[in-house]
Design a protein around this nucleic acid. Sequence first.
RNA 1: UGGGAUGUAGCCAAGCGGCAAGGCACGGGACUUUGACUCCCGCAUCCGCAGGUUCGAAUCCUGCCGUCCCAGCCA
Length: 557
Amino acid sequence: MDETRNFIHDAIEDDLAPGGRFEGRTVHTRFPPEPNGYLHIGHAKAICINFTTAEKYGGLCNLRFDDTNPTKEDVEYVDAIEQDIRWLGFDWGDRLFFGSDYAQFIYDTAEAFIRKGLAYVDDLSADEMRAMRGTLTEPGKDSPYRNRGVAENLDLFRRMKAGEFEAGAKVLRARIDMASGNLNLRDPAMYRIKKESHHRTGDEWCIYPMYDFAHPLQDAVEGITHSLCSLEYEDHRPLYDWVVAHADLADKPRQIEFARLNLTNTVMSKRKLLELVTRGLVDGWDDPRMPTLRGLRRRGYTPASIRTFCDRIGVSKVYSTVDSAFLEHCLREDLNANARRVMGVLRPVRLVVENYPEGRVETFEAENNPERPEDGTRTVPFARELWIEADDFAEEPPKGYFRMFPGNEVRLKHAYVVRCTGCVKDADGRVVEVRCTYDPATRGGDTPDGRKVKGTIHWVSAAHAVDAEVRLYDSLFSVPDPDATEDRDYKELLNPDSLEVLTGCKVEPSLADAVAPASYQFLRIGYFCVDNRPAAPGRLVFNRSVALKDSFKGGKG
RNA sequence: UGGGAUGUAGCCAAGCGGCAAGGCACGGGACUUUGACUCCCGCAUCCGCAGGUUCGAAUCCUGCCGUCCCAGCCA
């Protein structure tokens, strides 16, 4: 983590250098979510950047809920957000803050701005204000209330606070420059009237500060040195600096913007994610196909894999969309190293070992993880009748196929080498049973005579197998960039095959008591986790986190 | 002549005047009791384009082109 570099680190090191803006200071960042929705992988990037940047320089990172708009925010999200950040493994110590806690301070600062002639109360309606703001290419016009005296402004502002005016009747505006090329500087609103209960301050206030006024003050009060945010705030930086410059505070935090994360085959906007949930297009915020942290968690993503991902995608100011395959790669890397291997048959077909005595059962020791010998072994039972993957048998093998087909030898992982003798089909010609004979000399799967057996397949003893439901997930959208397709509603681009539910799957008995959040590698298939929503007693549900890579390019098996 | 950013491989991304890192994806090979993992090899004579400065430019200068963001009393 120390060797990663980006332009933010460069900027911080300049600031810390002798003569720099923050020479001798402790680097202090913050993650400032608005409690109006669940966190997603895009937030994870911001969380990682803020926490790891502070850590890199021996600094601190605060968690601050940016709750300045009572109409959109809810306490229910606060807990969820805290949980998700903790789950990722970050710790804000005792530095949990709420923007609303600074309400009085921000209000006092607003009065100070009024006294300095930097703000005025405007009676214009929202529509009138918009009409007078000008356009991208034309300057705006001064409001007729722009030159009210300090005393009148102060009086009006206090009466706004006292609740004398209805919502929308008046706003406090910064007095900057109605002709600025930067629209954010055309006398932006600083305070608006909202007669609504706030999730923390209740009915104490009926005026609430706007982000542009509140955020820089919150940063400054907390002693934030580097306020890291996304690119769309670049245009707001002059305003941020303006507020900070005129506020009566020693600290002058520096805002630095970076590009937010986009991922292929998914959407990241809160609005769209919310719509997917409310329309029932997914199974809630924690649907394993959702890019929310809760969705990823339920999918089987580990905190480590997400942090590695965020670390490796880098930080820059270029609008970018990262290939989801890279996120999957990071998950496989983590799970390959840490997930125990088991055998599970998703689409079972019966295999009968003709020369194996009926009723006989023997057991084999199977390694739990070849990448971690210290994880030891487990016992798997073997008998005459087994389940194997339907895909692992082909009456007429495609080119390059080296699994089970008549006459071919294949190894049953950990057990014996068997030779396929044929199959039994039903009236419709469907294979219902595969037949084979085993070579007793190959116990454990070795070939004492040194002969090569190319194929190795997984299996489960029919008599000992445990039934399970397996959910196969794929990408939520069938196109790389659902947001970019303007001629079609993004909901039409949902991948119809993003979920396939398989019942009657057969897994080895060691999985009988598996509980979330355990992850396993089902040999030769992929990584699966126990679904973290409570299943009916005795029922096992596995979610596929990500499939194993498969370099077999032959025809369908 | 609105303002602010940004263009390095299919996708991320280093690079900061000395002769194009790395990862993902992809292709080939080795190994293999997972067609996984691992390991090799390949993958930008070129850095949006055009000029210029320089012994030397992706890095500096000029011009052009493309893309993104901004007209909430949202954040």
